[in-house]
């Protein structure tokens, strides 16, 4: 019974595409933890009183949110290639820098950093003023005010939108190998699905399985983020659970 199930074309595709799915997961799981603290820095930078820092942060966020990720990948890869002769080769780091497993997360980090910074900036602006003033009146240092009041409020307010951003970042990993070189069998879901399609032209099967992988992992991400959301809101009675819905500043891959 089990054997005959595994013999179906569908299950065979599920098995073949398991390893490529790990590549998509790798890109997302490396980029999210690195992008998160950077995004907070840029969010604070955008709201900073220092003109120079504020303008720089604003420019960075606008540029990376206003252009397609597809172009960002091409641009960074070609810039890195151009720097190969004068910089990476003499330093002996060319293999590392030009490797898709490094360059992919690098561009994804910059991209998610800009989108998340915008989300966190919005949350920072909506932090209750009264709470901040109360903390200042208690004589807390600015760092303590941030750590005890601004930070938890920001995280709580930004979390639903940030969840969407994480899922969209995961979807954006589908672009990586359309722009960067594919090395040997290091292929992601889209790549492998495309390869299987070119063999037997069974479009509906291969793309459905790849799509199901994306859908399932997205659902798991939503579920995990929902657990965090519950924890962030544990002091609020009757807090609404996170729902699967479109956010205004959401994005797709590109």
């Amino acid at each position: 019974m089990f054997d005959s199930l595994m013999q179906t074309a569908f299950m065979q595709d599920v098995v073949i595409l398991a390893k490529p799915a790990l590549f998509n997961l790798y890109f997302a799981l490396v980029s999210i933890p690195v992008g998160f603290p950077l995004a907070i820095l840029f969010a604070v930078g955008k709201g900073s009183g220092n003109k120079l820092i504020s303008i720089f942060s604003r420019g960075f966020i606008y540029a990376f949110r206003g252009s397609p990720l597809f172009i960002q990948f091409f641009m960074f890869y070609s810039i890195m290639l151009a720097l190969n002769k004068p910089l990476w080769k003499p330093l002996g780091v060319d293999d590392f820098i030009l490797h898709p497993l490094f360059l992919g997360p690098l561009v994804l980090v910059l991209n998610t950093c800009a989108y998340s910074a915008e989300i966190f900036y919005g949350a920072l602006k909506s932090t209750p003023k009264g709470e901040v003033e109360a903390a200042q009146a208690m004589g807390m240092s600015p760092f303590n005010v941030f750590r005890k009041v601004t930070w938890p409020n920001m995280l709580r307010l930004a979390w639903p939108a940030y969840t969407n951003e994480m899922v969209f970042l995961f979807h954006a990993t589908a672009i990586v190998y359309f722009t960067l070189p594919v090395i040997n069998e290091q292929k992601d879901l889209m790549n492998k699905a495309g390869e299987l399609f070119e063999k037997d032209y069974n479009l509906f099967l291969h793309f459905t399985v790849a799509g199901l992988y994306f859908l399932t992992i997205s659902m798991v991400l939503f579920w995990l983020a929902g657990l965090v959301q519950k924890r962030l809101n544990r002091h609020i009675t009757g807090a609404k659970p996170l729902s699967f819905r479109l956010f205004p500043r959401s994005r797709s891959s590109q």
Binding site: H171, A172, M190, F197, L203, F207, F214, S218, S253
Partner: peptide, 22 residues
């Protein structure tokens, strides 16, 4: 609305033209 949001847009953009052609 759920399916389209749960799957990368790139996958659909490649899928629909090929599916129609086939």
């Amino acid at each position: 609305t759920t399916i389209v949001r749960g799957v990368p847009d790139l996958l659909f953009i490649l899928f629909f033209p090929l599916a129609f052609e086939q």
